[in-house]
Amino acid sequence: MAPAIELLLLIPLSFATAWVQTKAKQATTQAHYQLLAYGRRLVRRAALGLTMLITLLNFIALYFLIKALLGGHGGTAQTLLVDAVNIWCTNILAFALWFWGIDRGGPASRGVSLRTQPDLLFPQMSIADERYQGWSPGFVDYLFVAFTNATAFSPTDTMPLSSRAKLLTMAEAAISLLTLALVAARAVNILA
């Protein structure tokens, strides 16, 4: 049921994003730009709300899986492994969306505003090479950060700078650690 709810929320969010982008191309007056700024804020809040919902539902799924494990009702090893992989992959995607959505004001303002402070320090931002001047991370960069954090339980080459990025990094690592250490270990124990 959770994926259906998320999909139902994602569809209007996608249409709203497309509407704002279309209107941005047609904007000519200050009133148009103010309306666009308001629309972008609403879309950003809705996107962060959807990301929060995905994260919360994934955490609830992990909670019930651990509760079933501790109660002796975890199921077969194959079921546990599938559940662990599902929770772990959802964790990566959810936190990639978090990182993408918060860093420097989100994707809509990342390349526009130079005033926003970065939440994450990518290696390309530290290289004194003209090829990387003005470089801006894309979604794949945030997906990589989330994947390496979920795998190593700590940041690898991209450092969290803000408190919110550090808290998100800690939360992702904790969820991954619980998923892999408890659920996957129990599944391997059953197989052995």
Rank of each mutant, 00 (worst) to 15 (best):
A2F: 09
A2L: 13
P3M: 02
P3F: 05
L8I: 11
L8M: 14
L9A: 11
L9K: 03
L9S: 07
L9F: 08
P12A: 02
L13R: 02
T17A: 05
A18V: 09
V20I: 07
V20C: 07
K23D: 13
A24Q: 12
K25E: 14
K25A: 13
A27S: 08
Q30W: 12
A31V: 06
L35E: 15
A37D: 14
G39K: 05
V43K: 11
R45W: 11
G49P: 00
M52A: 15
L53D: 00
I54C: 13
T55E: 03
L57E: 13
N58Y: 00
A61G: 01
F64K: 09
L65Y: 04
K67V: 10
G71I: 09
G71H: 08
G72M: 07
H73K: 12
G74T: 07
Q78R: 11
D83Y: 12
A84I: 03
C89K: 13
I92C: 05
I92S: 06
L93M: 11
L93G: 04
W98K: 11
F99S: 03
G101R: 01
I102S: 08
D103P: 09
D103N: 10
G105K: 05
G106C: 05
P107V: 04
R110G: 08
L114V: 14
R115N: 10
R115G: 02
Q117S: 09
L121D: 08
F122D: 00
F122R: 03
I127W: 01
I127L: 11
A128K: 12
A128D: 15
Q133M: 08
S136T: 11
P137V: 03
A146W: 01
F147S: 13
F147K: 01
A150V: 07
P155H: 11
T156D: 09
D157C: 04
D157Y: 03
T158E: 01
P160C: 02
S162Y: 06
S162E: 06
S163I: 15
R164H: 13
K166I: 04
L168W: 11
T169R: 04
T169V: 10
A171M: 14
I175D: 02
S176G: 13
S176A: 14
S176W: 07
L177D: 02
T179K: 04
T179L: 01
T179I: 01
L182N: 05
V183S: 03
V183I: 15
N189L: 12
I190G: 00
L191F: 08
A192M: 13
A192I: 13
